[in-house]
């Protein structure tokens, strides 16, 4: 293992350790735990969006699959009385199933059209939830979505996971497992096909890669993860509403993208970084009220203008700036910082 690999692993382990030690540190203030809980759920959603970028598409419809996951989970638990864990998996699978059903025609559409298509699809799913009042409660919302309830944990005894402080473990745990799976997939053999498709769609097809097939697998996995995050959210919040202002609205779809780009879309930890930074800034600037959106907007624009690799890419960015400075000092012309390689 290389030195970088070591530091990377240590960083990851440190992150996980901190994540699980947080409730103990923050025992006096469960409020921050609810924030971190949401943060974990959002990170999963953003990561699912990033996963689609591996096939060079920008899906603005991850929120749509989160709607499906959330309401399916609520329906399974409330109407069919299925316990938490099977329901969590089933609702995510349901969301993946819907993605599978629409995948073939959807993935034929490319580029900007794919983004618009997925954005409108997500909005359609939300509106269906909004108007299907017998199932979803409509704009009044659905209340009383159960959480995991009291469960037996080995070595510990019975723990009531409905309390936000304890639900945190479930949310963070599930999200970590999901992220590990995504990470593994990105390193696995299948990602070679995805990368081939990302780099050159036609060439990938020409060398015998089943382009639509591999795209479908990617899309379905991303939908599964989005559905999972929706289901986790339903049990966290205990109520759901499909209002425009809710987390299932169009603006959320777009924010997810902003989270990803601010963090750094080329890095696996980009979504985590972007979500963490932007959500914590939003929490820290709570008191500034109407100026708050302005701060988020300014950060998004500044990052894309000056840090095209995102926050995670800062070290690399700094290195490239230094290199350019050194070369300029040495009298070499015509070099620009990485990401700004001249107009030629």
């Amino acid at each position: 293992m290389t030195k970088r690999g070591w530091t990377k692993l240590l960083l990851w382990v440190g992150l996980v350790v901190i994540a699980f030690a947080l409730p103990t540190i923050l025992r006096r203030d469960p409020y921050w735990l609810t924030v971190f809980c949401l943060l974990a759920i959002n990170t999963l959603l953003v990561s699912s969006l990033r996963s689609v970028t591996l096939i060079n598409e920008i899906s603005l419809g991850q929120v749509g699959f989160a709607v499906i996951g959330a309401y399916a989970h609520a329906a399974l638990m409330m109407k069919a009385h299925i316990p938490f864990w099977p329901s969590l998996i089933l609702s995510s699978l349901f969301s993946a199933l819907i993605a599978l059903a629409v995948a073939y025609p959807f993935l034929k559409v490319k580029g900007i059209y794919f983004s618009i298509l997925t954005l409108l699809t997500a909005e359609t799913f939300r509106l269906v939830a909004y108007y299907w009042t017998s199932m979803t409660g409509g704009s009044l919302g659905l209340t009383g979505v159960p959480g995991p309830g009291k469960q037996q944990v080995p070595f510990v005894g019975e723990v009531n996971f409905d309390r936000p402080a304890n639900y945190y473990y479930i949310a963070v745990g599930v999200v970590l497992v999901a992220l590990l799976i995504l990470y593994w997939l990105e390193r696995a053999y299948i990602s070679f096909q995805w990368r081939a498709i990302r780099d050159d769609n036609l060439l990938a097809g020409a060398v015998g890669i089943n382009v639509i097939g591999y795209k479908t697998i990617n899309f379905v996995i991303a939908a599964f993860m989005a559905g999972l995050s929706g289901a986790l959210f339903a049990s966290y919040q205990h109520n759901l509403s499909p209002d425009t202002t809710s987390r299932f609205g169009v603006s959320m779809s777009i924010y997810l993208l902003v989270y990803m780009v601010v963090g750094g879309k080329d890095y696996f930890v980009g979504p985590l970084m972007g979500t963490t930074v932007l959500m914590l800034i939003a929490e820290a600037t709570r008191s500034s009220q109407q100026y708050q959106p302005m701060i988020t907007g300014a950060i998004a624009i500044l990052v894309i203008l000056f840090l095209p690799m995102g926050l995670v890419g800062i070290p690399k960015q700094v290195r490239s700036w230094r290199r350019v400075k050194r070369l300029r000092a040495a009298g070499v012309d015509g070099v620009n910082p990485a990401g700004k390689e001249g107009k030629a």
């Binding site: 902003v258 780009v261 988020t296």
Partner: peptide, 17 residues
């Protein structure tokens, strides 16, 4: 495309507030 979406989203937030 990605840049334009992010920049215009930022712009939306800034102009509205």
């Amino acid at each position: 495309v990605l840049c334009s979406i992010v920049i215009s989203t930022g712009l939306t937030l800034i102009l509205t507030s």
